[in-house]
Every structure is written in structure tokens, then in C-alpha cells.
Nucleic acid binder design. Structure first.
Lengths: 382, 382
DNA sequence: TTGTAGGCGTTATCAG
DNA sequence: CTGATAACGCCTACAA
């Protein structure tokens, strides 16, 4: 006990002998075993300001409802003691926490490049609202999913953002079935009544494809992300629409990739390069569903002797920062990740505040094609 | 109330009429305003299993100290009801939370490439210990730092990992002064009695430099990270040691970069390329303190007509996944990020469990140079 | 082995 | 405008 108070008085710096006894007296009847470091309590602040605990609570939470003079005394006392309210106690009392969790996919696929940006944007926006961010890594195994669900069902979090993955579930519980406010980011789950913030995958890649067609390309290699994945479905559909509207048939596209379970997209790009090499008749343009794939594909294909964009044009999806510094600089569809992160938080906050029942709202933040040197007119040797 | 119970009985699926009344009766005297969704309570489980609340608590926390038969009844009841303990209540009672926070730097510098890996490694290891991970984004401004300190002082977290940044502080509080267990990751803060998990920045880059010297290089461009930064200091020192041991003078090194405040390292690399172009006598080798810098530098310098490694060799630091797919593939010093993340968690857990006073322990996980095609013997035209 | 009772630090209701 | 008081849901001596 002496050590605790000594430390405190040192921290407080100066004439704090009075404080020491005050705190000590409050602590007298505490269980001596549990007693460790925990900081000053609201009771300590109250004592120092010469008011009741409840008044301190009010002064701190709702400064309007307390006399200006006493409020000043109280905040001063709190400041002096370095008081910080105990979050667990508050959460327990009000039945709600101030943390939101983000569920990240275990395998990053193409997403690895943009995760730091998304996290930063989300966390910053949450901070603005006074909330904190908890990470839940979604390895698709039982203990990991249970861990996540415990957070939701145990009241540790008051909302969740699901990043590019399906809602986790174990035997009898599922994130989707909770009353917990949820927003899906990147994946469109609005059909399952989960509000979603997405980009226009299909439209954006359709326009990129149309651009290639206008340049004269008529045969394509499409490098797919994990088959069946929402993004894969949407993006391939976009390519197909452009092809068909140009009067070409689906035969104009060679599909490769599609393997599930790679940690990064790079491996897919490497294999796609081999697939390309094995083709008897080579497409003149490549559409990759992530920058990672495009980057490793380019690297391997250049090493095999093809030149980009001389004999092969390439465009991909993500807009990762590194794409600008590839060789050649990569044409890519830039996702507005910061916008999307912010929008997801705003949407989630709206659901939390109004405690609305969930609707299948959907917000679309358009992506935009950036043309760089990886694209040109097709080679003529074919 | 009826709605709540209806939802519950639907969720439970089958013959739950009895359950409904049980839960209802427990809830009878709850404040009807606060009442929202919150799941089944321990009291509900106790009632259903026909035992006292304390017995349920024991059965769940310490299965050994309860009769096997009643334990089975209790876990069955908990399972049926989909019971998940309330985290806030438990934390309040035991005076400790089960979440650890990671403090991330606001500006990512070179770190952007490895953050997802670190996060994943840390979160996975924490999950193994039964802990959760909270993110604290360290923008260097007052509200943001206060936000972080509230987490620590409010008992929201039971430990912190500081990733490549200085401990945050506001007026009277500092993370470093807390009794909170802290581990520094990447930055060596062991001198300030903060246990640290680091890599051998100096030694690793020294060996890389020595390798360049052995190939015949004797003039270098060093692209620095933010000046004064720990990594910058260490890495430059490593380069210098190698140079001097080879009998060369510090004049053999041209320094560039060093700007603080860039979000990514790419910008630094771009400027370094301009600096390189402006030099009247060109170095034959480049040492970049992050992959980001090296990548954008290569891109720009190649565009200016220099070939790599023909006229210029380059090596950098980080070992980001993309480095393998650069053009040419980039020689880089790979940091064992997953190892380091795991080690940081293990170390933190040790401090939490033993509630040791902090010592200045330091764990070094060696980095390793990977040689790829961006390095060769120097051009002879000089 | 199980039940009873008290308290963790807040907030919110109710009188004064 | 302020003070006393009762929960919030769980854990843990202590008693049975």
C-alpha cells in the first residue's frame, strides 16, 4: 500500500501529502490481495473536490447539469489526480462498450496491400466518434471463429465491420444473427440484410475492359481470385459484359487462377505466367483481379521474354501504392479505400445510435481506372 | 419483453417454452428502459441447470472443482442457451482485461508493407493465449494520444505493444510511466527499461554493405528514412562500420532522404532518384533503408536510362513480399516479422503473468540478406 | 461439493 | 443543484 501511494505522490509531483491520505483511506477496506496498481477512483476525485461521487459522475459526463463552480473544482481534482474512468465499470453499468471490431480475412489474397490504409481510415474515424477498434483475425478454424463470437456475444464490442469476408459462425451462434450492428466492407452482403459499403467492382472492370477493346484488343487472359468469391464473380461478370457488348464471345477470354487458400496473390500471378506460356495462341491483354497477381505475373512473363506493353497489355484491380512504381507502371483500378473505411464507420455509427433494425442498405463508392504504361495497342504479329 | 423472448426461443429452435419463462422471470425486475437485446445471463444457466450461480461460475472457470455430473448439466444448459459470459462484468470483478493494444505509428514510412503480417502474427499468438487485440493509431496529435492513454489508464487493456514508435504521452500521463506491461517491437527501448524485441538492423546492413564492397563497390548512395529515427541511426551506423572496416572513408557515402512525415517511403525514393541524377560523380551502389524507397527509386532511375544492376546495384531493408517480383528482383534484408510478433507477445505475456517489474530485457531476432538480381559487380566505366 | 453474500467502479433514479 | 442508494453481471471468500 505504501508503495502505491508513494508512486502516486511522486507522479503527482508536489504537495500531495493530503492526496496520499485521501486515497489511502478510500482504499482501506479493499481486499488486500487483489490490490495492485489501479489508478485513482471516482471516489478519490469526489473526496478531493469535497462532493459526492454522483456529482463527479455528472460533472464529467454532462457538464451542463452541474454548477459551474463545483464543476471547475471537480475537473481540477480529476486533473490533479490523473483520474481516468474505469471502462469496464462504465460498460457494465451502461450495458454497452465503446469498441468496434473489424473482422479481417485470414488469407489476405489481394487485400494485403490496402489493409493498412483501411485500418488507419477506420480507426481514425472511430476515434473521432470516441470509439476504439479491435481486430479479429478470421482464420477459418473453429477456435478462431469462437473467439470472435465471444467478443460479440460477450458484449465486448458494440458493433462490427466485416472486411471482405463472410460473417463468422460456430455451431449455434453466428455473427449475422446477432442484434449487434454490423456493416460489411467490400463484400456486398446487402442481400442478406447486412448493410454494405462496396465499390463498383463490376462496372469499373467493365470500363477497363472496354478501354482495352477500344484499343484493339480482342483476346484476354483473366487472372481470377479465389473462385466463387464475391469479387471474382463480380469482376469476371464485368469483363464478360464488356466483351459481349463488343460483340465478342466468351471464347475471347482464357481464365486462370481461382485457387483458394493462398496467403497472397503473388503465387497466383506466378502460376498464371506459366499458364500463359503454355497457351498455343496468346491473348494480347491481361486482366488481373488484384495488383499482387499482376505484379508477379509481369515479373515472370517479362523474364520469359515478353515485353509489356509491347506484346502484352495488363490492367488490374486495387490501386495499391506500389503499382505506380512497377516496371512498367501498372494500370490499375483504384479503390477509394479511405472513403470506404470512413463510410463504413459512419454507417455503423448510425445503426448504433438509432439502434435501427438492420436494413439491407448499400453504399457504393466508385473506383476509378488509372491509366499507366502497362497498356497499349495490341501487337500486330498475330 | 415479449419480443426478446420470442427472438430467443426462435434462436434456440425447439421446445424452449420452459426456457422462455425462466429467462423472463429472471428479467422481471430489470429496468425496462435499459432492456435491449443482451443475451442469457449466468443466472439463466444456473436456473436451467438447477444450481446456484456460483456453481455455474466455478463449473465454467475451473471444471475440476465441481462434480462431474453437475458440470455436465451446467455446460449443457449453457450450450442450450447459447450463453457467453459478459466481459465487462468479469473484467470489473477481476480487475483486469483480456485485451492487449498495439500502438501503430501514424505515418507508415517503410513499415506499410509488413504491418499486415505483424498484425496477423500478433493477433494469432494472442488468440492462443486467450487474449484480444486492440489497435491504437498513433497520429502525433493531442486527441489521438489522449485516446490511447485512456485505454491504458482506464483499464481497457492489460498490456501494450508499441510498434516502431515512441511511447505516447500527454500532459501528465505517459504510457512509459504506467504500471502497464509494455513491449517495444522493432525499436530498441531497452535502454529506457522497456523490454524490446528487435532485429539486428546494424549488423544486417553491415553485412550487406560488406557484400557490396567484396563485389568491388566503393561508392554508395544511402537513402535514409526519417532522420534521427532509431532505424535510420542504426542502419546508417551499420553501413559506416562496414565502410570503415574496409578502409574506405565516410566520403564514400552520399546520403539522401531523411525527410520526416511522408506517409509512405515511395516519395523518398522518387526524390532520391532526382538526387542521384544530379550527382556529378555517380555511386555504383545504393543502399535503401526500406523496400518502398528502393522500389520507387529503381523505377525512376531506370526510366532515366540507368540499368540495374548493370550500372547500379541496389539493396534494401524489409523483405516485403513484393520485393521478389520487382524488376529486377530486389535484394533485401528480410526481417523475421512473424517471429518478432510472436516473440513480442510471448514476452508481454510473461510480464503479465508474473507481473514482474519491467526490466530492460532485449530479444534480437536476426534478419537475413536475400540476394537477388538487383546486385552485381560494379560497372567499369568509372 | 455446493450455496450465500458482498463487492468490483460506474451510472441513474430518486429525494432533498 | 446535489447527495444517498441501488443496480449492472460476475467472481470468490466463507459457511454449510
Amino acid at each position: 500500500l505504501a508503495i502505491v501511494c508513494l508512486a502516486l505522490s511522486i507522479a503527482l509531483g508536489s504537495t500531495t501529502a493530503g492526496v496520499q491520505t485521501e486515497i489511502e483511506s478510500v482504499r482501506k477496506n479493499k481486499n488486500l490481495i487483489t490490490e495492485e496498481q489501479s489508478g485513482p477512483l471516482m471516489a478519490d476525485v469526489a473526496r478531493r473536490a469535497g462532493v459526492a461521487i454522483s456529482t463527479v459522475s455528472r460533472a464529467l459526463a454532462d457538464p451542463g447539469r452541474v454548477n459551474e463552480k463545483t464543476r471547475a473544482r471537480i475537473t481540477a481534482a480529476a486533473e490533479d489526480l490523473g483520474y481516468t474512468p474505469n471502462a469496464a465499470a462504465r460498460n457494465l453499468r451502461v450495458g454497452k462498450s465503446d469498441v468496434v471490431m473489424i473482422v479481417l480475412p485470414g488469407a489476405l489474397h489481394g487485400a494485403s496491400q490496402i489493409i493498412p490504409q483501411v485500418l488507419q481510415s477506420i480507426n481514425r474515424t472511430l476515434g473521432h466518434y470516441g470509439y476504439h477498434l479491435m481486430i479479429a483475425n478470421l482464420d477459418r478454424d473453429e477456435p478462431s471463429e469462437r473467439h470472435i463470437l465471444d467478443l460479440a456475444y460477450g458484449g465486448s464490442v458494440c458493433g462490427a465491420i466485416i472486411f471482405s469476408s463472410e460473417p463468422p459462425a460456430d455451431g449455434n451462434r453466428s455473427l449475422a444473427d446477432t442484434a449487434l450492428p454490423i456493416v460489411s466492407l467490400l463484400l456486398d452482403l446487402s442481400g442478406a440484410t447486412i448493410p454494405s459499403v462496396v465499390t463498383n467492382d463490376r462496372q469499373a472492370i467493365k470500363e477497363a475492359t472496354r478501354h482495352l477493346i477500344e484499343l484493339g484488343h480482342s483476346s484476354f487472359l483473366y487472372i481470377a481470385g479465389p473462385t466463387g468469391n464475391y469479387h471474382d464473380v463480380e469482376r469476371y461478370a464485368g469483363v464478360l459484359e464488356a466483351i459481349q457488348q463488343a460483340g465478342l464471345s466468351e471464347q475471347a477470354i482464357v481464365r486462370t487462377g481461382g485457387v483458394l487458400g493462398y496467403q497472397y496473390g503473388f503465387q497466383t500471378g506466378v502460376e498464371a505466367a506459366d499458364d500463359f506460356a503454355a497457351l498455343s495462341v496468346k491473348p494480347t491483354a491481361v486482366i488481373a483481379s488484384s495488383d499482387d497477381m499482376a505484379i508477379s505475373f509481369m515479373s515472370r512473363v517479362q523474364r520469359m521474354g515478353w515485353s509489356i506493353p509491347g506484346t502484352l497489355s495488363i490492367v488490374s484491380f486495387d490501386g495499391s501504392p506500389v503499382s505506380e512504381y512497377c516496371n512498367p507502371p501498372l494500370s490499375t483500378i483504384v479503390q477509394p479505400v479511405e472513403d470506404m473505411g470512413k463510410a463504413a464507420v459512419d454507417l455503423l455509427m448510425a445503426y448504433i445510435d438509432r439502434s435501427d433494425n438492420r436494413t439491407g442498405e448499400r453504399i457504393v463508392k466508385p473506383s476509378r481506372l488509372i491509366l499507366r504504361e502497362s497498356i497499349s495497342v495490341p501487337r500486330s504479329d498475330h
